[in-house]
Amino acid sequence: MLDRIKASLPSLAPAEQRVGRLVLTDPRAFANLPVSELADRAHVSKPTVVRFCRSMGYDGLSDFKLKLAGSVSEGVPFIHRSVDVDDKTGDVLVKVIDNTVAAFLKYRNDASTFAIERAAEALASTHKTGKRIEFFGAGNSGIVAQDAQHKFFRLGVNTIAYSDGHMQVMSASLLGPGDCVVIISNSGRTRDLMDAADIARKNGATTIVITASGSPLASAGQIHLAADHPEGYDRYSPMVSRLLHLMIIDVLATCVALRIGSKLQPLLKEMKNNLRNKRYA
């Protein structure tokens, strides 16, 4: 959570930057002090403190302080450890799993429920009106986009995934008001994805971005689901970001399924029964 605030500081208004620096200076105190005291220490108004929390993707000051307190008190019990060339199989097993667990626990502490709820509502509303839902990603994130399409397809959602930059730009050009596009990127700096996001947004479509805080793509999307992970570049072990993105998609798909409601159950049951014929007894 503190890493995300630090990365987002340059994109904030000057007054909100002062609130952000106050959080980074003493997060424990920020989580416990009343809003009037926080405003005095940051030399801003009380509404500015609340605006800062919402700018970071939280549902006001109470939600922000709750997540901040959890992040500071629980922390993350593991740090990212790179796989070394002379590691034994047991070392690799522990490091790869610990790195993944660290990223997941960090996300659990930092995740903005407000942003996730906005994204789930946008996707569910788009599905309800029969408009288009599309997933864009490039390279590794393109595989995550395909996984997202598969998960939402199973829910009866009419959706498609594109990993080719030309197809993304062409498809974004055909989107309009009521449509929704989810753009996935680890770096948040891929030119093709930025171009597609800009086109979709200008055409009136809702843009949801799953990417790193402080990146250009994070600012380009209407709804930002922050995917920040404590890893460096490791030539041997798989990218934790891929697993983190997959988990965020799982959370979104589950939230949308709950919004679709009870009518989804017969559909999933019929699908499961039909698949039985594809398996050996």
Rank of each mutant, 00 (worst) to 15 (best):
L123C: 12
V72M: 03
T206V: 14
T211C: 04
A39V: 09
L9G: 04
I208K: 12
I199P: 00
Q265N: 08
A197V: 12
F136M: 03
H229G: 11
N32K: 04
T190L: 06
A120W: 02
G90H: 05
N99P: 04
E117F: 10
M271W: 10
E121S: 09
S11K: 12
G142K: 01
V85I: 12
D59S: 04
G232I: 10
R51D: 00
R242K: 12
H43E: 13
R28I: 15
M271A: 15
G137C: 07
D84A: 10
L264Y: 00
G178H: 12
M194R: 10
S215H: 01
F153W: 08
L9A: 02
S213F: 01
Y280R: 15
L258W: 14
R189D: 00
F135E: 07
A148C: 01
P238S: 09
P177C: 09
T113N: 12
Q222A: 13
V85P: 04
T126Y: 09
V251N: 04
H245C: 01
D110C: 13
S241C: 07
D63H: 05
L105P: 15
I223K: 02
A15G: 03
E231K: 10
D63P: 05
K67A: 11
V19N: 02
P27R: 06
A218H: 01
A119F: 06
L68W: 03
R51A: 02
K46L: 15
M1D: 07
V19P: 04
R276H: 11
I5Y: 00
D59F: 04
A196C: 03
S262N: 14
S213H: 00
H224N: 06
T254C: 05
A102K: 07
L61M: 07
S71K: 12
N158F: 13
K128F: 15
T159H: 00
L66F: 11
L174M: 15
T254S: 03
S8P: 07
M194P: 09
L93Q: 08
E231C: 12
K6Q: 15
A7Y: 05
E37R: 14
Y162D: 12
D192P: 03
V144P: 04
E121C: 13
A253I: 01
V19Y: 02
G176D: 09
P77L: 08
F52G: 11
V94D: 15
V35G: 06
L268Q: 14
V182F: 01
I143A: 12
T25I: 11
V49R: 03
D26F: 07
R276G: 10
A122C: 05
A161E: 05
K46G: 12
M271D: 10
L246E: 03
D3V: 14
P216Y: 05
H166R: 14
I248S: 04
L243Q: 03
F114G: 06
T206W: 05
V240F: 08
L243N: 03
A103V: 14
R41E: 14
R279H: 13
T207H: 06
A138R: 12
A13H: 12
K131E: 09
G188F: 09
F153E: 04
T190Q: 02
T89L: 11
C53K: 03
A161H: 10
A212W: 13
A119R: 08
V85K: 02
T206E: 07
I199N: 00
A212Q: 14
D40T: 07
M56T: 09
N203W: 10
N277I: 15
L93R: 14
A7L: 09
G178M: 10
